[in-house]
């Protein structure tokens, strides 16, 4: 199963990753190899098999609607590279 360079570029954009031409080439080869291996799964007929998203079958885990204290704003912002007016700052976005 080959994954083309243009597919790698599309996926990279979706994943917000940047690669050089060389890296794209290498990634295309590596992913193709991994997918070849993963395609082993196609040996199995799973037509009538239900998918398992949660291995432990529990349901209805809720919390009550109770307000708990939030974090002090200094702590909210403490790891941010750019802040202004109590907010996180990002490059200008035109909406």
């Amino acid at each position: 199963m080959a994954i083309s360079k243009s597919e790698v570029e599309y996926i990279a954009k979706l994943a917000r990753l940047k690669f050089t031409e060389e890296e794209i080439e290498a990634m295309s080869k590596e992913l193709s190899k991994i997918l070849d291996y993963v395609n082993k799964l196609n040996e199995l007929d799973t037509e009538n098999v239900e998918p398992t998203a949660h291995i432990v079958p529990i349901h209805n885990v809720f919390r009550e609607d109770e307000v708990k204290p939030s974090m002090p704003r200094e702590k909210v912002l403490m790891n941010a590279p750019f802040t202004e007016q109590g907010c996180f700052k990002v490059p200008k976005i035109i909406e």
Partner: peptide, 27 residues
Amino acid sequence: RRIMLGTYALSSGYYDAYYKKALKVRT
């Protein structure tokens, strides 16, 4: 590499072939 593989497996048109398939094999 893993982000790329995972993004690919979930992307439009491949979800059933990869992610859903893997969840079925999990069963």
